[in-house]
Protein backbone atom coordinates (compact mmCIF):
# COMPACT_ATOMS: atom_id res chain seq x y z
CA UNK A 1 0.00 0.00 0.00
CA UNK A 2 1.68 3.14 -1.19
CA UNK A 3 -0.97 5.47 -0.02
CA UNK A 4 -3.12 4.39 2.89
CA UNK A 5 -6.09 6.45 1.71
CA UNK A 6 -6.31 4.36 -1.54
CA UNK A 7 -7.72 1.42 0.28
CA UNK A 8 -10.32 3.42 2.14
CA UNK A 9 -13.94 3.44 1.20
CA UNK A 10 -14.63 6.70 -0.67
CA UNK A 11 -17.38 7.37 1.87
CA UNK A 12 -14.78 7.66 4.56
CA UNK A 13 -12.43 10.33 3.38
CA UNK A 14 -10.36 11.70 6.20
CA UNK A 15 -11.26 15.28 7.00
CA UNK A 16 -8.34 17.68 6.80
CA UNK A 17 -8.12 19.51 10.03
CA UNK A 18 -6.70 22.96 10.39
CA UNK A 19 -3.87 23.17 12.80
CA UNK A 20 -5.19 23.86 16.26
CA UNK A 21 -8.77 23.21 15.27
CA UNK A 22 -9.14 20.40 17.75
CA UNK A 23 -8.52 22.85 20.55
CA UNK A 24 -11.37 25.10 19.48
CA UNK A 25 -14.40 25.65 21.69
CA UNK A 26 -17.51 26.93 19.94
CA UNK A 27 -19.50 28.20 22.88
CA UNK A 28 -19.40 31.95 23.55
CA UNK A 29 -17.44 32.93 26.63
CA UNK A 30 -19.77 33.97 29.47
CA UNK A 31 -19.05 35.01 32.99
CA UNK A 32 -20.07 32.57 35.70
CA UNK A 33 -22.95 34.80 36.75
CA UNK A 34 -24.34 35.32 33.23
CA UNK A 35 -24.11 31.63 32.68
CA UNK A 36 -26.03 30.74 35.84
CA UNK A 37 -28.72 33.31 35.05
CA UNK A 38 -29.08 31.94 31.52
CA UNK A 39 -29.57 28.44 32.88
CA UNK A 40 -32.05 29.54 35.51
CA UNK A 41 -34.13 31.22 32.80
CA UNK A 42 -34.28 27.96 30.88
CA UNK A 43 -35.90 26.27 33.85
CA UNK A 44 -39.64 26.97 33.37
CA UNK A 45 -40.75 25.90 36.84
CA UNK A 46 -38.12 28.09 38.46
CA UNK A 47 -39.10 31.09 36.33
CA UNK A 48 -42.78 30.67 37.21
CA UNK A 49 -41.85 30.36 40.88
CA UNK A 50 -39.76 33.49 40.64
CA UNK A 51 -42.67 35.39 39.06
CA UNK A 52 -45.16 34.11 41.65
CA UNK A 53 -42.83 35.07 44.48
CA UNK A 54 -42.43 38.49 42.93
CA UNK A 55 -46.20 38.96 42.84
CA UNK A 56 -46.53 37.78 46.44
CA UNK A 57 -43.84 40.16 47.62
CA UNK A 58 -45.34 43.12 45.75
CA UNK A 59 -48.77 42.33 47.18
CA UNK A 60 -47.32 41.95 50.66
CA UNK A 61 -45.92 45.45 50.31
CA UNK A 62 -48.78 47.30 48.60
CA UNK A 63 -51.74 44.94 49.15
CA UNK A 64 -52.97 46.36 52.46
CA UNK A 65 -53.09 49.86 50.94
CA UNK A 66 -55.17 48.85 47.95
CA UNK A 67 -58.33 48.66 50.00
CA UNK A 68 -59.79 51.42 52.15
CA UNK A 69 -60.03 49.09 55.15
CA UNK A 70 -57.16 48.59 57.56
CA UNK A 71 -56.23 45.11 58.73
CA UNK A 72 -57.06 45.75 62.40
CA UNK A 73 -60.21 47.82 61.97
CA UNK A 74 -63.26 45.96 63.31
CA UNK A 75 -66.84 46.46 62.13
CA UNK A 76 -69.42 44.50 64.05
CA UNK A 77 -72.19 45.28 61.52
CA UNK A 78 -70.27 43.44 58.78
CA UNK A 79 -69.03 40.16 60.25
CA UNK A 80 -68.52 37.00 58.20
CA UNK A 81 -69.23 38.62 54.86
CA UNK A 82 -68.56 36.55 51.76
CA UNK A 83 -66.09 37.89 49.20
CA UNK A 84 -67.69 40.85 47.43
CA UNK A 85 -66.83 44.01 45.51
CA UNK A 86 -66.47 45.82 48.80
CA UNK A 87 -64.53 43.22 50.79
CA UNK A 88 -62.59 41.29 48.13
CA UNK A 89 -61.80 38.32 50.32
CA UNK A 90 -64.73 38.80 52.71
CA UNK A 91 -64.54 39.66 56.41
CA UNK A 92 -63.85 37.66 59.57
CA UNK A 93 -65.75 37.29 62.83
CA UNK A 94 -64.96 40.87 63.86
CA UNK A 95 -65.78 42.27 60.45
CA UNK A 96 -62.11 42.91 59.62
CA UNK A 97 -61.30 43.08 55.92
CA UNK A 98 -59.72 39.77 54.92
CA UNK A 99 -57.81 41.16 51.91
CA UNK A 100 -55.99 43.68 54.09
CA UNK A 101 -55.34 41.03 56.72
CA UNK A 102 -53.97 38.48 54.29
CA UNK A 103 -51.40 40.81 52.75
CA UNK A 104 -50.50 42.28 56.10
CA UNK A 105 -50.08 38.71 57.34
CA UNK A 106 -47.96 37.77 54.33
CA UNK A 107 -45.84 40.83 54.98
CA UNK A 108 -45.24 39.83 58.61
CA UNK A 109 -44.63 36.17 57.79
CA UNK A 110 -42.14 37.03 55.05
CA UNK A 111 -40.44 39.55 57.31
CA UNK A 112 -40.04 37.01 60.10
CA UNK A 113 -38.79 34.37 57.66
CA UNK A 114 -36.31 36.64 55.91
CA UNK A 115 -34.95 38.00 59.19
CA UNK A 116 -34.66 34.52 60.66
CA UNK A 117 -32.92 33.28 57.52
CA UNK A 118 -30.57 36.27 57.58
CA UNK A 119 -29.70 35.58 61.21
CA UNK A 120 -29.12 31.91 60.42
CA UNK A 121 -26.97 32.95 57.52
CA UNK A 122 -24.74 35.33 59.43
CA UNK A 123 -24.32 33.14 62.50
CA UNK A 124 -24.20 29.84 60.62
CA UNK A 125 -21.71 30.93 57.97
CA UNK A 126 -19.41 32.64 60.45
CA UNK A 127 -19.53 29.71 62.88
CA UNK A 128 -19.00 27.04 60.22
CA UNK A 129 -16.25 28.96 58.48
CA UNK A 130 -14.32 29.71 61.68
CA UNK A 131 -14.66 26.11 62.81
CA UNK A 132 -13.33 24.75 59.51
CA UNK A 133 -10.59 27.33 59.00
CA UNK A 134 -9.20 27.21 62.53
CA UNK A 135 -9.38 23.45 62.77
CA UNK A 136 -7.80 21.52 65.63
CA UNK A 137 -8.98 22.28 69.16
CA UNK A 138 -11.20 25.23 68.22
CA UNK A 139 -13.01 23.08 65.68
CA UNK A 140 -13.37 20.31 68.20
CA UNK A 141 -14.99 22.49 70.86
CA UNK A 142 -17.26 24.21 68.36
CA UNK A 143 -18.44 20.88 67.01
CA UNK A 144 -19.24 19.56 70.49
CA UNK A 145 -21.42 22.63 71.09
CA UNK A 146 -23.27 21.97 67.86
CA UNK A 147 -23.80 18.34 68.80
CA UNK A 148 -25.39 19.38 72.08
CA UNK A 149 -27.71 21.80 70.27
CA UNK A 150 -28.71 19.11 67.81
CA UNK A 151 -29.42 16.70 70.62
CA UNK A 152 -32.19 18.92 72.00
CA UNK A 153 -35.28 18.98 69.77
CA UNK A 154 -35.49 22.51 68.42
CA UNK A 155 -39.28 22.67 68.60
CA UNK A 156 -39.12 22.20 72.37
CA UNK A 157 -36.64 25.06 72.74
CA UNK A 158 -38.79 27.28 70.55
CA UNK A 159 -42.01 26.43 72.40
CA UNK A 160 -40.39 26.98 75.81
CA UNK A 161 -39.01 30.33 74.74
CA UNK A 162 -42.31 31.45 73.29
CA UNK A 163 -44.02 30.60 76.55
CA UNK A 164 -41.56 32.66 78.60
CA UNK A 165 -41.17 35.69 76.35
CA UNK A 166 -43.73 38.09 74.95
CA UNK A 167 -45.07 36.97 71.59
CA UNK A 168 -43.86 39.44 69.00
CA UNK A 169 -41.96 39.36 65.73
CA UNK A 170 -38.62 39.70 67.45
CA UNK A 171 -39.23 36.81 69.85
CA UNK A 172 -40.34 34.45 67.11
CA UNK A 173 -37.31 35.33 65.04
CA UNK A 174 -34.89 34.79 67.92
CA UNK A 175 -36.59 31.57 68.97
CA UNK A 176 -36.26 30.13 65.50
CA UNK A 177 -32.67 31.26 65.10
CA UNK A 178 -31.43 29.80 68.38
CA UNK A 179 -31.15 26.42 66.74
CA UNK A 180 -31.77 27.31 63.10
CA UNK A 181 -28.20 28.29 62.24
CA UNK A 182 -26.84 24.86 63.14
CA UNK A 183 -27.71 23.35 59.76
CA UNK A 184 -26.02 26.16 57.89
CA UNK A 185 -22.95 25.99 60.11
CA UNK A 186 -22.52 22.28 59.48
CA UNK A 187 -22.95 22.64 55.74
CA UNK A 188 -20.46 25.49 55.49
CA UNK A 189 -17.93 23.67 57.65
CA UNK A 190 -18.19 20.47 55.64
CA UNK A 191 -17.85 22.34 52.38
CA UNK A 192 -14.80 24.32 53.49
CA UNK A 193 -13.11 21.23 54.93
CA UNK A 194 -13.68 19.48 51.62
CA UNK A 195 -12.39 22.43 49.62
CA UNK A 196 -9.28 22.80 51.76
CA UNK A 197 -8.19 19.33 50.65
CA UNK A 198 -8.96 19.92 46.99
CA UNK A 199 -6.04 20.00 44.62
CA UNK A 200 -6.78 23.52 43.39
CA UNK A 201 -6.37 24.85 46.92
CA UNK A 202 -3.13 22.89 47.32
CA UNK A 203 -2.03 24.37 44.00
CA UNK A 204 -2.85 27.86 45.28
CA UNK A 205 -0.66 27.21 48.29
CA UNK A 206 2.29 26.01 46.25
CA UNK A 207 1.87 29.06 44.03
CA UNK A 208 2.30 31.26 47.09
CA UNK A 209 -1.25 32.57 47.42
CA UNK A 210 -1.79 33.90 50.94
CA UNK A 211 -4.37 32.41 53.28
CA UNK A 212 -6.62 35.46 53.03
CA UNK A 213 -6.48 35.29 49.26
CA UNK A 214 -7.26 31.58 49.35
CA UNK A 215 -10.35 32.31 51.43
CA UNK A 216 -11.57 35.04 49.08
CA UNK A 217 -10.57 33.55 45.74
CA UNK A 218 -11.19 29.87 46.31
CA UNK A 219 -13.16 29.04 49.42
CA UNK A 220 -15.91 31.68 49.37
CA UNK A 221 -16.78 31.52 45.63
CA UNK A 222 -17.10 27.76 45.92
CA UNK A 223 -19.32 27.95 49.00
CA UNK A 224 -21.59 30.83 48.06
CA UNK A 225 -23.89 28.80 45.82
CA UNK A 226 -24.50 26.33 48.60
CA UNK A 227 -25.23 29.14 51.05
CA UNK A 228 -27.74 30.77 48.69
CA UNK A 229 -29.49 27.49 48.04
CA UNK A 230 -29.65 26.61 51.71
CA UNK A 231 -31.15 30.01 52.48
CA UNK A 232 -33.76 29.40 49.80
CA UNK A 233 -34.88 26.40 51.82
CA UNK A 234 -34.57 28.11 55.21
CA UNK A 235 -37.08 30.82 54.33
CA UNK A 236 -40.07 28.54 53.64
CA UNK A 237 -39.27 26.42 56.65
CA UNK A 238 -39.21 29.55 58.83
CA UNK A 239 -42.57 30.60 57.37
CA UNK A 240 -43.89 27.19 58.23
CA UNK A 241 -42.52 27.27 61.78
CA UNK A 242 -44.10 30.67 62.37
CA UNK A 243 -47.44 29.40 61.03
CA UNK A 244 -47.20 26.35 63.22
CA UNK A 245 -46.49 28.39 66.35
CA UNK A 246 -49.39 30.73 65.66
CA UNK A 247 -51.63 27.82 64.84
CA UNK A 248 -51.05 26.16 68.20
CA UNK A 249 -51.60 29.57 69.81
CA UNK A 250 -47.99 30.39 70.75
CA UNK A 251 -47.23 32.89 68.03
CA UNK A 252 -48.61 36.32 67.30
CA UNK A 253 -52.09 37.09 68.58
CA UNK A 254 -55.02 38.86 66.91
CA UNK A 255 -55.51 41.63 65.95
CA UNK A 256 -51.95 41.27 64.65
CA UNK A 257 -51.87 39.27 61.49
CA UNK A 258 -49.52 36.65 60.12
CA UNK A 259 -50.30 33.75 57.84
CA UNK A 260 -50.26 31.48 60.88
CA UNK A 261 -52.71 33.67 62.80
CA UNK A 262 -55.06 33.79 59.81
CA UNK A 263 -54.95 30.05 59.34
CA UNK A 264 -55.59 29.59 63.04
CA UNK A 265 -58.66 31.87 62.89
CA UNK A 266 -59.87 30.44 59.59
CA UNK A 267 -59.64 26.89 60.85
CA UNK A 268 -62.15 27.59 63.63
CA UNK A 269 -64.84 28.50 61.13
CA UNK A 270 -63.84 26.01 58.46
CA UNK A 271 -67.26 24.41 58.06
CA UNK A 272 -69.25 27.64 57.84
CA UNK A 273 -66.83 30.07 56.16
CA UNK A 274 -64.19 28.02 54.31
CA UNK A 275 -62.80 31.03 52.42
CA UNK A 276 -61.32 32.39 55.67
CA UNK A 277 -58.99 29.41 55.65
CA UNK A 278 -58.71 28.95 51.90
CA UNK A 279 -57.02 32.24 50.96
CA UNK A 280 -54.28 32.30 53.61
CA UNK A 281 -53.68 28.59 53.05
CA UNK A 282 -53.28 29.21 49.32
CA UNK A 283 -50.83 32.03 49.90
CA UNK A 284 -48.68 29.97 52.26
CA UNK A 285 -48.67 26.99 49.89
CA UNK A 286 -47.71 29.14 46.92
CA UNK A 287 -44.88 30.79 48.85
CA UNK A 288 -43.49 27.55 50.22
CA UNK A 289 -43.67 25.62 46.97
CA UNK A 290 -42.25 28.52 44.97
CA UNK A 291 -39.27 28.91 47.30
CA UNK A 292 -38.55 25.21 47.15
CA UNK A 293 -38.74 25.01 43.36
CA UNK A 294 -36.63 28.13 43.02
CA UNK A 295 -34.09 26.64 45.42
CA UNK A 296 -33.88 23.50 43.30
CA UNK A 297 -33.56 25.58 40.15
CA UNK A 298 -30.76 27.62 41.67
CA UNK A 299 -28.94 24.49 42.72
CA UNK A 300 -28.83 23.35 39.13
CA UNK A 301 -28.11 26.78 37.72
CA UNK A 302 -25.20 27.49 40.05
CA UNK A 303 -23.48 24.17 39.44
CA UNK A 304 -20.87 24.76 36.73
CA UNK A 305 -20.91 21.11 35.74
CA UNK A 306 -24.51 21.49 34.61
CA UNK A 307 -23.48 24.01 31.97
CA UNK A 308 -24.28 23.02 28.44
Amino acid sequence: MANPTDSLDPLFVPVRRENGEQERISRPALSAFQDSWRRLRQNKAAVISLILLGIMIVLAIVGPWLTKYSYAQTNYSAVYQSPSADHWFGTDKFGRDQWARIWQGTRISLLIAVLAAALDLVVGVAYGAISALKGGKVDNVMQRIIEILIGVPSLIIIILLMMIMKANIFTIMVAMSITGWVGMARLVRAQILKLKQQEFVLAARTLGTSNTQIIFKHLIPNTIGMIVINTMFTIPSAIFTEAFLSFIGLGLQSPQASLGVLIHDGFQTLSSHFYLLLFPALVIVVIMVAFNILGDGLRDALDPRMRK
Partner: peptide, 12 residues
Protein backbone atom coordinates in the same frame (compact mmCIF):
# COMPACT_ATOMS: atom_id res chain seq x y z
CA UNK B 1 -1.68 17.39 40.10
CA UNK B 2 -3.33 14.10 39.32
CA UNK B 3 -6.98 15.01 38.94
CA UNK B 4 -7.54 17.38 36.02
CA UNK B 5 -11.02 18.15 37.36
CA UNK B 6 -10.22 18.87 40.99
CA UNK B 7 -6.99 20.74 40.32
CA UNK B 8 -8.59 23.78 38.67
CA UNK B 9 -11.03 26.09 40.45
CA UNK B 10 -14.28 25.83 38.51
CA UNK B 11 -15.20 29.42 39.32
CA UNK B 12 -12.13 31.05 37.85
Amino acid sequence: FQDPYASLNQRM
